[in-house]
Amino acid sequence: MADSELTVTAAAVLTAEDEQSTGLRRTGRFTLIARRFARRRSAVVGLVLLVLLVVFAFVGPRIAQWGYDEPDFLALAQAPSAEHWFGTTTGGSDVFALVARGLGRSLAIGILSSVAITVIAAIVGTTIAFFEGWVERVGMWVLDMLLVIPSFLLIAMIVRSSSGANGWIWLAFGITVFGWIGYARVLRTLTLSLRELDYVHAAKYMGVRSFTIIRRHLIPNLGSVLIIQTVLGVVAAVNAETALSFLGLGIKAPDTSLGTILQAGQSVILTAPWVLIAPSVALVLLTFSVQLIGDGLRDAIDPNSRSGGRA
């Protein structure tokens, strides 16, 4: 057996003996984060609430007695009953089925947009900061120019030109196209300090390719920020979709979302308040749960947070 193998074997034996003698056991990073997250009761409540909303969005349309696109013309603006659990709209549509369908559509748009925005912003922001010089100057100029574009109007134009069946895809695309710009500027600022670290300079001197350094060293070291932003970005994307759909510039019939239901409910708030209350409660619970999860992740990832202590 070679000397190096003997050294590794001896070190492994010593490590095992130390763990047995001290009674301590190594804890992985993800295990430690999970334990810190679990100690935050509010974060656990938010996670459970989000899971229930996701289950409702997927299971609700299957257990509803009526489809979201199957109006009951014998029950127009009917209050909640055994047949229509959340009541009906003035057109006879079942509010329970509408909210389940709308919540699922809003969640799909929010999750897809948030993940895509995080990926694009991470790549662009770290690349601009890493190359410095004229690349950084041109990149920041482009970001500044993109920030002055009226994104709200352009997203509305993109969605308006689509059909009702695939309108949600174009809406998610529009939110993604204009949603990463400000976040890329933030990540560029955070990367300025990372690019001066010794291991980044060592990788450059060793001839490692620039994009390999970005992928292996810079982006992973922003992992905690990216995770939190992805979670909180779901709420931002859902709110953007809701605002556009509420104004009639987002999801169009025959599809539906929380924004379109709110738009229909605001005109009958006095005669049929359940049409407005049901989607409003779903939107508030979704926002509240994601905020709790985001706060829990922030405290769990940050070792100096108040959720520290024994893990």
Results as ranks from 00 to 15, higher is better:
S245A: 09
S307C: 00
T22Y: 13
D94R: 11
L50H: 00
A57C: 11
G139F: 09
L103R: 04
V124G: 04
D144N: 15
R26H: 12
D295C: 03
F246K: 02
Q229L: 01
A64V: 07
A12S: 12
R298P: 04
R26I: 08
H84S: 06
L32V: 02
D299W: 04
S224M: 08
W141Q: 12
D198I: 02
V281E: 03
L98N: 07
H84R: 08
Q65W: 05
A156Q: 06
A253V: 11
V99E: 05
R160N: 15
V51N: 01
G207N: 09
T15S: 11
A12Q: 13
T256M: 10
P220A: 11
I213N: 05
I301C: 12
I175Q: 00
I33H: 03
A129K: 00
V95A: 09
L249M: 14
S106D: 09
V238K: 04
W66V: 00
D72T: 00
T126G: 01
A300W: 06
T88N: 08
I149F: 12
A121E: 06
M206I: 00
S4F: 07
A43M: 03
A202E: 11
G174R: 08
I123S: 02
R306W: 09
A311S: 13
L197K: 13
V208F: 07
L103V: 09
I277R: 02
R298T: 14
D295L: 01
D69T: 13
I219D: 03
V48K: 04
V281I: 15
F246S: 05
G164F: 10
F211T: 14
T9W: 08
I120E: 00
F211R: 12
L249D: 02
G87Q: 01
T271E: 15
A184G: 07
A272F: 05
K204I: 13
T31E: 14
G67M: 10
A11D: 13
V115E: 01
L47H: 03
N166Q: 12
F288V: 12
F131I: 03
G259K: 08
Q20N: 14
R26N: 10
G164V: 09
D94C: 11
M1C: 01
E196Q: 15
F73R: 08
T7I: 14
V48L: 15
K252I: 09
M206E: 11
A165E: 14
R25S: 14
V138Y: 08
S289Y: 10
S267V: 10
L154G: 07
L146H: 00
T9E: 14
P80I: 08
A156R: 04
L270T: 10
I277T: 06
T256P: 07
R188I: 01
P80V: 04
T22I: 06
S162F: 05
F86M: 14
A243H: 01
V159E: 07
A82G: 12
T127L: 12
